[in-house]
C-alpha cells in the first residue's frame, strides 16, 4: 500500500476513548454488552439484504431495457453492439457525431486495449490517467445496475478514476451480462472479486452526465464532470447491433 505513514497526530486517542465510553454508557449495561457485540458482528458478516425493489426482476433483456430507459432519462446516450470488434467504429462514430477530435484515452484494461483499433486508423488512442487536455475518455464498467440506470466503475490501473470525471466526454463499455438488477447484486460481485470486506480504492456509481441545478433550479449538464456520457452495451444477443458489414 502506498505511503503507509503513521498518523501524524497524537492526542485524538483520548477523545476517541472518552467518546466511545460515553456512548456505551447510554446504551449498554455489562450484561447487554455481549448481546450487542454479537448483533453487530452478525450484521457485519452476514450483511443481510433489506428491501430490494422488484422493478429490475427479469431476464437480461429486461435488465438491458430498464437500464437503457433510465440512463436515457438521465440524459446519457446508449447504444448496443453485438461484438467487441464493433466498438472502435462506434466510438469513432460518436466522436464524429459530436464534432469531437478523433482522440480517446483509456486505462490499461485489456478488454479495451485489445480491441481492433486498427480498424479506425484515424482514431488516436492512448492510455493512462486523465490529462486536463483530454476531451474524451473511455472506460469499461465493472458492472451496471438496471434498477436505477447506473454504471459501476472500479478504480485501478485498468480504469483510472480520473477518466470518469476530468474529460468533457465519457464513453463507457458495459457487457450486457454485467448489468445486474440491484446494487446488492453488485456488492456480491465485488465481494466475490475483491474479497469480503475489501473494496477497491474507489467505486463510482454513475447515472448520467454531470449536472447542476444550482442556478434557479434549472438543470444544466456538464457542471464539473462529463457533459456527455455515451454507453456502449456489448450484447451478443442484440439485434440492434448486429454487424453492419
Amino acid at each position: 500500500m502506498a505511503n503507509p505513514r503513521g498518523p501524524i497526530l497524537s492526542g485524538d486517542q483520548d477523545v476517541r476513548d472518552a467518546l466511545l465510553t460515553k456512548i456505551r454508557r447510554t446504551q449498554a449495561t455489562d450484561k447487554l454488552d455481549a448481546k450487542r457485540r454479537q448483533a453487530v458482528q452478525e450484521r457485519l458478516s452476514n450483511h443481510p439484504r433489506n428491501i430490494v425493489p422488484k422493478r429490475s426482476d427479469g431476464n437480461v433483456d429486461h435488465k438491458v431495457a430498464l437500464f437503457t430507459k433510465l440512463m436515457t432519462a438521465a440524459d446519457a446516450t446508449v447504444e448496443e453492439v453485438s461484438m467487441p470488434s464493433q466498438i472502435p467504429r462506434a466510438v469513432a462514430e460518436f466522436l464524429r457525431a459530436h464534432n469531437l477530435p478523433q482522440r480517446i484515452r483509456f486505462g490499461k484494461d485489456p478488454a479495451l486495449t485489445g480491441l481492433a483499433w486498427d480498424q479506425t486508423p484515424s482514431l488516436e488512442v492512448s492510455d493512462g490517467r486523465a490529462r486536463v487536455s483530454d476531451e474524451t475518455s473511455m472506460g469499461r464498467a465493472f458492472a451496471a445496475v438496471a434498477e436505477s440506470g447506473t454504471l459501476v466503475m472500479t478504480s485501478g490501473q485498468d480504469n483510472p478514476t480520473t477518466l470518469n470525471f476530468l474529460p468533457e466526454n465519457h464513453v463507457v463499455v458495459v457487457e450486457a451480462n454485467r448489468i445486474w438488477g440491484s446494487y446488492e447484486d453488485v456488492w456480491d460481485e465485488i465481494r466475490h472479486h475483491y474479497g469480503d470486506t475489501v473494496m477497491p480504492r474507489t467505486v463510482n456509481l454513475i447515472s448520467g452526465p454531470s449536472r447542476t441545478g444550482d442556478i434557479e433550479q434549472r438543470l444544466e449538464l456538464g457542471a464539473h464532470g462529463p457533459k456527455r456520457l455515451h454507453i456502449i452495451i456489448l450484447n451478443s444477443a442484440s439485434k440492434a447491433g448486429s454487424p453492419k458489414e
Partner: peptide, 8 residues
Amino acid sequence: EISTYTTF
C-alpha cells in the same frame, strides 16, 4: 432515482 455520482 439516484444522484448522478455516488462514490465509495
